[in-house]
Design a protein around this nucleic acid. Structure first.
Length: 259
DNA sequence: ATGACCATGTCGCATGGA
């Protein structure tokens, strides 16, 4: 099975590109983030015409997560147990969607940005990551053999080499030690990031300042796999071509092949 | 060329992204 994750930065702007990617790449299951629309606005017909079922969770023009699959979708779950809320009045945001596709539990995740170290959004980000660790750890405790993929835009660069110039990120969000510790904490409960051993490239380049032509990017999109799933990973890649041409997302697809 | 922000709602400009 070929599994991919992609922050599409608006599915309505990008739907033709996304469906073309699915058909060209032979992706069976695609987790999407930042769809930026409500459920009734999601262009489901384009996916269905290409042979994919699609499940979407979006509440407004912010966030939004989805999964498209041509190998079935079942057991849809909106948000994970204990997921923190945001705002006044406090409400869950559209940042997590769990589905089962051909025996693999896939979570499409859009981790809060954080904005700046110390900002309330940053505190929320760390709480969100801690709650995810607790929930995911409990899933593995309940079923150590479960095939679980936590995929998406983590908004964390776990290593210095995951940004083009670490000296420009002093004191910035995405590279702070608490964020990196929160990412590593998933390893403490049994998960393994499975793309790094196969991929060295960035997954995101800002639209501004020629970041892409200069390859000044960040690596913030990852796949955390349970032990049973990690054992089935036979390869991983990014599709750098998806950052080129007309109207690209600022992120590229991250692809994992399961044998 | 891989090229000098882009998306939303709303219609002049605020908000969010990283």
């Amino acid at each position: 099975m070929r599994l991919a994750t992609w922050n599409v930065n608006s599915i309505r702007t990008r739907v033709d590109r996304v469906v073309a990617f699915l058909e060209r790449s032979g992706t069976d299951v695609l987790a999407m983030q930042e769809t930026k629309c409500r459920d009734e606005q999601f262009p489901a017909l384009a996916f269905e015409a290409a042979g994919y079922e699609v499940v979407h969770h979006g509440l407004n023009q912010w966030n939004g997560v989805a999964v498209a699959s041509r190998v079935g979708i079942s057991d849809v779950e909106v948000g994970f147990p204990g997921m923190p809320t945001w705002g006044d009045p406090a409400a869950a945001e559209a940042r997590a969607l769990g589905v089962t596709c051909d025996g693999v539990r896939v979570w499409s995740l859009y981790v809060p940005n954080g904005r700046a170290v110390g900002d309330p959004h940053y505190v929320y980000k760390l709480e969100w990551m801690a709650a995810l660790r607790d929930a995911a750890g409990a899933w593995l405790t309940d079923d150590p053999d479960a095939q679980i993929a936590l995929v998406g835009d983590w908004n964390i660069a776990p290593r210095d080499e995951d940004v083009w110039d670490i000296s420009l990120f002093t004191g910035a969000t995405h590279v702070s030690e608490p964020e990196r510790a929160a990412f590593r904490a998933l390893e403490d409960v049994g998960f393994t990031e499975v793309t790094r051993q196969h991929v060295e490239q960035y997954t995101y380049w800002d639209y501004q300042q020629l970041r892409f032509p200069r390859n000044e990017g960040m690596r913030i999109d990852f796949v955390q796999a349970s032990p049973e799933l990690a054992a089935h990973v036979v390869g991983a890649q990014i599709d750098r071509d998806e950052r080129k041409g007309k109207a690209p997302s600022d992120h590229v697809p991250v692809i994992v092949d399961l044998g």
